[in-house]
Design a protein around this nucleic acid. Structure first.
Lengths: 349, 349
DNA sequence: CTGAAAGCGCTTACAG
DNA sequence: CTGAAAGCGCTTACAG
C-alpha cells in the first residue's frame, strides 16, 4: 500500500466539507470558477487543518517540480555565500526552491552534479561554470552566470567596466605604475577585469600583471607574492582582481613595513566579508548580486513557462551586464613618493 | 490531461520490452525476484534509452522526497561555504539532495524558512540556528548543528576543547596575558570557545575578553578594536574566536607598526579561506566539517528510515562532539618582550 | 519468476 | 457553479 503523508490532503478537506476534491483544488488555487462563499469556507477550513499542498502530487501531475538547481564550481569560493543568498532569495520570491550541487572543480564532476539535479527533476538550472567550461544543454532550461565573454552566458556583472572604475580611480589619484594581481589566468572573469583596468590607463602609464597561479607553480601554494619588492621597483598601486588577492598583497606589504595608503595603494574586487573591517579597509568594486540573481531567476522562470516541452534551452537571448560599483575605502590614496627611493633608483616602465 | 515528462518512463521500457512495469521496476531497483537474464536485459535497455527515474512519482508513492533541507541563519557567514560543501557531499553520498533556505537572521524568518522546506516535503532538516534559538519540532526529523551547550543539539565541533588547544599553545609559547576577541556575546559557539581558552590558563595568567558587538554599539560598525593600545598595556597574545576577528586584529596591529609574531601573537578559529595566505599566515583551529556533516546526515537518514510516521523528531539522542585540530602557522610565536616597553611601564593583571 | 492492479495527491478538461 | 473521472510515474502487496 502506498505511503500516505502525515498531514491532511485535498481529499480529507473535501469529505470533511462535503464537497469534491476538484472544488477544493479550484478554491485553493483560485483557478476554477467557484463561488465566493465556498472559496472562503474552503480556505478557512484548509488553514484550520494546517493543510500543506503536496509538491510531489503537484509535480507528478504538472510535470514541474518547482525547484531550481544551483551548480557551483566550488562552493568554497568566498563569493559563494553572496551568490547563494541572492539566488535563494530571488528563487524563493518567485516560488521556487533551490537545490545545490557542488561540482568540486573538474569538468566531469560538473557534469555529474548537473545529472544529479536532472534526476531530481529541477525545472531549471543556474550554472556558474568553472573557467571556460562549455555547458552542454541539459534536460531543462539553463542560465549561466559568468562573464559577457563566455559563450552562452545569460547574465553577469560588467567586470570590464568594474576594471575601468578601478583604473579611473587610481589614475585620478595620480598613480602611474599599476601592478595587477590575479590568481587564475584562465578565468574569464579575471581577464575581463584586468582588461578593463588596462583599457582605462592613460598614455605614459604602465601596468604589469602578476598571476599567482603561475607563481605558485614554482613557489608552492601560499608563497610570497613579492609585492614589497615590486613596490621598491616603483609600483605605487596594487590592483588585485579579487579581494582575496588584495588581502594577500595588503598583509604582505604591511609586514614589510610599507604603509597603506601612504606609501602605496591597494584595491580589490567583490567586497568580500572582511573587506570593510580590515585595517586599512579595502577599496573595492561591488557587484549587485541581488540584481544578477533576479535576472537569472526570471530568465529561467520565463523559459520554464514558455517551454512546454521542458527541453534543454540555454537562456541566452540577451546577455545582461550589471554595472559594478566602486567603493572607496582607506586602502587607496593619492600617489605619494612610493617606496622606490627607499632602496634604489631603478624604475619600472 | 496531465503533463508527461520528456524522457522515457517505466511504462515505455516495459512495453518496448514486452514485460510489465512491475518487472521493470523490480529489475531496476533489484528488490523483487526477477531472473538474472531479464534484469540484465532491462537494465541495458533502460540505459540505452537514457532512463531517469522520476523523483516525483517515487516521492508520491513512497512518501519520501529524497531531499534534505539546510537552514542557515545567515548564508553570508564566512564559514558557510565549508558547511554547505560538506553537507552537500555527505547528503549526495547518501542519495539525498540538499535544498537550501536562508533564514536571514531573525527568528520569524527562520520559522518561515523551515516552513518553505516543509512545503517542499523534505525528508529531514539540518538546522544551524542563530544564537540560542530553540527549534520547535517541525514536520520531519531535524538535526541541529551548534554546540554541545545548545539544548537539542545533535552534533558539533568540540569548541571548548578547541579553546583549550589555543590556550595550551599560547601558554606553551610563554604568553601570560591573553586578550580574547569575540564578536557576539550571545553566541554559544563563541562562549564555548572562550570558556575553553580560560579553562586552559595556568595560575598567574590573565585573560580579558573584548566583545566587538558591544564595542561597535558605541564606535559604529567597523570601528577600530584598539588592539595596539592593548598590546602596549602588556597583552602579548590575541586569541580571536573566529578568523574574521583575528584578521581584523592582525591588520590593525600591523598598521600600528607592531610585528607579528615577533612582538605579539595572533590566533583565530575556523581556518577560513584566507587564513593560510595572509602574511603572516594565521595560527588557527580547524573543525572537521566533513565529519560533522556526515554525522548530521546519517543521524537524519537513520531517523528517516525509522520514523514511519514522518513526525517531527529532534535527532538528539547523542550529542557528538567532533575534535578540533590546532594548526600552527606563522602568526603565533614565543612570547617576547611584547610592546609594553615601547611606550610605558604600566602592566595588566 | 512475472504480471495485474491499486493508490500516493494533485490538476485539468469535461459533463452536468 | 460543482463534481466525476482520468492520469502524471512509481512501488508494493498480492495473485498466478
Amino acid at each position: 500500500m502506498p505511503q500516505s503523508r502525515p498531514g491532511p490532503n485535498l481529499s480529507r478537506i473535501a469529505t470533511s466539507l462535503g464537497v469534491s476534491v476538484a472544488t477544493v483544488s479550484n478554491a485553493l488555487s483560485g483557478k476554477g470558477r467557484v463561488s465566493g462563499q465556498l472559496i472562503e469556507k474552503i480556505r478557512e477550513h484548509a488553514a484550520e487543518l494546517g493543510y500543506v499542498p503536496s509538491q510531489a502530487g503537484r509535480a507528478l501531475r504538472t510535470g514541474r517540480s518547482g525547484v531550481l538547481g544551483l551548480v557551483l564550481p566550488d562552493i568554497a569560493n568566498p563569493l559563494f555565500p553572496k551568490i547563494a543568498q541572492a539566488i535563494e532569495f530571488a528563487a524563493s520570491a518567485a516560488g521556487y526552491g533551490v537545490l545545490i550541487a557542488d561540482s568540486r572543480g573538474d569538468a566531469a564532476a560538473q557534469t555529474e552534479a548537473i545529472n544529479r539535479l536532472v534526476e531530481r527533476s529541477v525545472d531549471g538550472m543556474i550554472i556558474i561554470p568553472r573557467r571556460a567550461t562549455r555547458i552542454s544543454a541539459a534536460a531543462c532550461p539553463v542560465a549561466v552566470i559568468d562573464t559577457a565573454s563566455t559563450p552562452g552566458n545569460t547574465v553577469a556583472a560588467d567586470h570590464w567596466q568594474g576594471g575601468r572604475e578601478i583604473a579611473d580611480h587610481l589614475t585620478g589619484l595620480g598613480h602611474r605604475h599599476i601592478l595587477i594581481i590575479g590568481n587564475n589566468q584562465e578565468s574569464n572573469v579575471q581577464n575581463d577585469r584586468a582588461g578593463g583596468i588596462r583599457s582605462g590607463m592613460r598614455p605614459g602609464m604602465h601596468a604589469e600583471t602578476l598571476w599567482i597561479d603561475r607563481l605558485e607553480q614554482d613557489g608552492g601554494i601560499g608563497c610570497p607574492l613579492g609585492v614589497a619588492e615590486k613596490a621598491r621597483q616603483g609600483f605605487t598601486a596594487f590592483a588585485a582582481l579579487s579581494d582575496l588577492q588584495a588581502l594577500r598583497a595588503l598583509t604582505e606589504l604591511q609586514q614589510a613595513g610599507i604603509n597603506i595608503p601612504t606609501d602605496v595603494s591597494v584595491t580589490g574586487f567583490d567586497d568580500l566579508i572582511w573587506s570593510p573591517v580590515v585595517t586599512p579597509s579595502l577599496t573595492t568594486v561591488r557587484m549587485d548580486m541581488n540584481r544578477i540573481a533576479e535576472i537569472a531567476v526570471s530568465a529561467l522562470t520565463d523559459a520554464i513557462k514558455t517551454s512546454v516541452t521542458r527541453e534543454g534551452v540555454l537562456v541566452t537571448a540577451t546577455t545582461d551586464r550589471v554595472a559594478m560599483q566602486l567603493i572607496v575605502r582607506q586602502s587607496s590614496g593619492p600617489c605619494g613618493p612610493g617606496t622606490k627611493n627607499l632602496r634604489d633608483g631603478e624604475h619600472v616602465g
